[in-house]
Nucleic acid binder design. Structure first.
Length: 194
DNA sequence: CCCTGATTCGC
DNA sequence: GCGAATCAGG
């Protein structure tokens, strides 16, 4: 397999969606996670943040060059992300707008099984879950394995029901995001690494 | 042991 | 440019 434009595009999209290299490799097929990571580096997008920080290579500018109003060079707005024409089919692609993903998921009345005894779950975790569910594999009961997140989504009495299916982090039954809401430590633990 | 990304280096 | 092997970490 080779890196066709299409495959590279998928790679970029998934990488920016926060998918892991192994997941991307699985999706693309014919490549290993190493290949994916290697490509990611070659493309120079190891940093998943949408906007490149740009280490300000600005020249020291010894002399401010007073005279000569010069042209309105001004600051470079940095085009940043292009509008990206929406794809016809395919799922909706959101660049992780943490702020917007703050709706009340878990509307009262819905049969949410592992309903955490505690009523307050970290908003971060909730946001992450709603995010993750958009990209869930939507597995059926039979498709679950020890490595797939078993978090149920939707109403079991309707067709709108599936299991998350994303990779479990370790020996847990859920993916990282769902572990976050499934197991709430005795005391709210605050630790943000990375 | 499962996984993650990062780096190296022969091809 | 590519990616397996390896490294470093959770």
């Amino acid at each position: 397999m080779s890196w066709t434009d299409e495959r590279v595009e998928t790679l970029k999209r998934m990488w920016n969606e926060g998918q892991s290299a192994s997941q991307i490799a699985k999706e693309l097929g014919g490549v290993t996670r190493n290949a994916v990571i290697g490509k990611v580096h070659r493309l120079g997008l190891s940093n998943r943040t949408g906007v490149a920080p740009q280490p300000a290579p600005a020249a020291p500018q010894a002399a401010p060059a007073p005279a000569q109003p010069a042209a309105p060079a001004a600051a470079r707005p940095e085009p940043a992300a292009a509008p990206e024409a929406a794809k016809p089919a395919e799922e909706d692609d959101s660049p992780i707008p943490m702020s917007a993903a703050r709706r009340a998921i878990i509307p009262a009345g819905q049969p949410l099984p592992p309903q955490p005894s505690a009523n307050e779950i970290s908003p971060e975790a909730l946001a992450k879950v709603s995010e993750v569910e958009k990209g869930a594999k939507k597995l059926t009961l039979m498709e679950l394995t020890e490595k797939t997140c078993k978090w149920p989504v939707g109403d079991p009495a309707t067709d709108n029901f599936w299991f998350c299916g994303l990779p479990t982090q370790s020996g847990k039954p859920y993916c990282e995001a769902h572990v976050g809401v499934a197991f709430q430590p005795m005391s709210s633990r605050r630790d943000r690494r990375r």
